[in-house]
Design a protein around this nucleic acid. Structure first.
Lengths: 289, 289, 289
DNA sequence: ATAGGTTTTGTCAAGCTTTTGTACAT
DNA sequence: ATGTACAAAAGCTTGACAAAACCTAT
């Protein structure tokens, strides 16, 4: 006897937002659902049924007719089982689709495949960074919801941090990474850390919203060969310029993120990281050695 | 049954911006569209139809007459068959150069590009297999060192096994793959496994130097639709022929690798895989279905 | 007599917020509770009962029907399938079970979880290496078939090589890794390479069955800070001792694998790697810096 | 482009059954 | 404490309906 959660129709309806009548109709007309029955004849739905309803809804939202949507929802996922091709463009589209319907299992499976098939550099340059970019653009156009954006970034942060495990160990030069005060977007910085790690650096990561003094203290303790600060807007940079000067005097200081393009960045930092993380990691590394 | 999105006329109209009436007219007049029909007679359009409508529109916008535009939209296009950047011949040369100097960074970057741009089949047939062949030939001519050959096969094995991740999952027929006893070259077999996988098979891979009894045991447990044994020399095959007979009696047995061309192979195996892995995977699959 | 706290129905009701009537009904209808009785017939509930009631409530709150909620509350937790179980001992057992039945899906999922939850070091020391060891021991005792051993090592090799991708990049000292001529067991060597990589080394990997001259050639080209040779039996080492001397004179030479314990190894190598890969990687690294 | 008929699909209703918390009598 | 009863809530089946979308033919 499986320890699965079996749902009755009301709960399935509540969780999917589809009326009980429709659920029964979809079962009768398209065999979308195959509930077991309780002793008294009530329908008991498995998690697989729940999943199918979610897919059905996603296809309906995409404009498919109900019969078509049901056919696809019932078809075994052959996006991820068949053709092993790891074309990042397709992976990206599939990832976007999975995020669209909050399908974590599918999203993780796609990321699994990407991690297995690509190098760290390619993973970042061809999949993760363009996808995040796209997500941001979609949000600005009002196409993706904030919820989707959070879901996606949580997912990706988890995977990247998994890859980041142990990135402080070893014998390479140390890079100290932090987001500027008030800055909470750390994915780009994590990506840069991974690219550096792949080139032999040791990473100390302070994360989002790090006060200037904290960076200073940490630098004094670990004596990094490079300090990298990241922020999306020059607004983050301006208030701390004065505090950064002594840091810049003692350590190689780099500024990344969108604010790297501002004149302020050029004034205070030894190095401005205006291109993608992987290229910049290459440059920084070749300077180092 | 394809897992394609089939659209009804309203959705196709919405997605292309062409009125339903026009779509029907284009179907009648120019056979631009070949929708299937639902049980009740509604038109169901495939993604290919969608693509043709888009092309038609583009041609119309360019000023062509409708009949001309339709003719062009129906013609198979050969432009997207290959973009120059991932030309396998160049990739192969570049890969050889990278391996020559043990430059893993460059080699991995090249393989990234190849994995991204090519299908599994193309990756195998146009890059990996010819490259390995060339490497072997270079070694026989004394041009490449064994060190480079080892380095390269390690690299490629890692990438192929990455693509192989999850090749045992799914619902297709099962193929059991193993190298003959004493045989340690498994790359060809991995390539064959990937080609089969791209055709929907499930793969169970026993790898190098597998004793005959082992193959037997495994076959009994998983009941494969096909057993594939690989070896580079008839020397590997001869000592186990007697042991393979009962296996061949019970399962479809195929022999691959250079030893497939020997008379021994023909005597024991139902199927001799003498050509490249991709073609053979095609044949085996068409026999299966 | 157990020193458990036994609760009467009123107290259980107060602690769980479920009415006494419902508790009795749940006992009668779903056998959710198995109270002992006092001399006078009063129900006495154990802490396990309390726990089950809490689970029941949690499932009810999640919207499950009472019958379903009770079924789940009574089912033994298979925490295995839940998130918290990155316990390497259990993972190992589960991995063994998955391999036993050639279930790649389950095995990959387990490895996914392990890779996500453990550091490289822990992955190697607590999961992969003990598992391989166990597998070997089971084989010697005739318990596991060679088929399973092959299947498992193929699987694990794929995963480790996936983690190894890009291990040649960067700025650290270079280690040249190879198996001795005639030696085909490369998993231990790959593990050692990963442990070194986690400590900042760059790895050049020549793999199984590498001729002595090959090692020599490669070393001359890449000028490694360390050369590591691996073999399971002194038989592999003896024939090449003479050829290794000049290599040992020019580079730091280490011998790993079971043959490291032989007197021959001590005679030719600067360093004998007799312990597990991770400890030895630690030592080698501290010597280096 | 319109007209007139068909298909698809979500929703509703009526009458009956199951499930489940609570109340009551012993 | 036990056992039975009860009623509200939730569910089942069958059948039907109507709006939207689609068809063909003129």
């Amino acid at each position: 006897m499986p320890a699965e959660e079996l749902l009755r129709i009301g709960e399935l309806s509540k969780r999917t937002g589809v009326s009980a009548e429709s659920l029964r109709a979809w079962e009768r007309r398209y065999r979308l659902l195959r509930p077991t029955r309780s002793a008294g004849g009530l329908r008991l739905y498995s998690p697989d049924d729940l999943e199918r309803v979610r897919k059905m809804r996603a296809h309906l939202a995409a404009g498919l007719a109900a019969a078509e949507a049901a056919r696809l929802a019932c078809a075994p996922d052959d996006e991820d089982s068949r053709s092993g091709s790891a074309d990042p463009v397709r992976l990206r589209a599939a990832l976007a689709a999975a995020v669209e319907r909050f399908d974590e299992a599918a999203a993780q499976a796609l990321l699994d495949r990407a991690v297995a098939a690509l190098s760290i550099d390619a993973l970042l340059v061809e999949l993760v960074l363009p996808y995040l970019h796209e997500l941001g653009a979609g949000w600005e156009r009002g196409e993706t919801s904030v919820a989707q954006e959070h879901f996606a970034s949580g997912l990706i942060r988890g995977r990247l941090l998994g890859l980041a495990r142990g990135w402080g160990l070893g014998v390479g030069p140390i890079a100290l990474l932090a987001c500027l005060p008030g800055e909470f977007h750390d994915l780009g910085l994590i990506a840069f850390g991974l690219a550096l790690r792949a080139r032999g650096w040791r990473i100390v990561f302070l994360g989002a919203d790090t006060p200037a003094e904290t960076i200073d203290t940490a630098a004094r303790m670990i004596d990094p060969a490079l300090v990298v600060l990241s922020g999306v807007s020059p607004k983050r940079l301006r208030p701390v310029i004065a505090q950064l000067r002594p840091l810049a005097a003692r350590y190689a200081l780099a500024i990344g993120g969108a604010c790297a393009e501002s004149p302020e960045a050029a004034r205070v930092a030894a190095r401005v990281l205006a291109e993608d993380p992987v290229s910049e990691a290459d440059r920084v590394t070749s300077l180092q050695s």
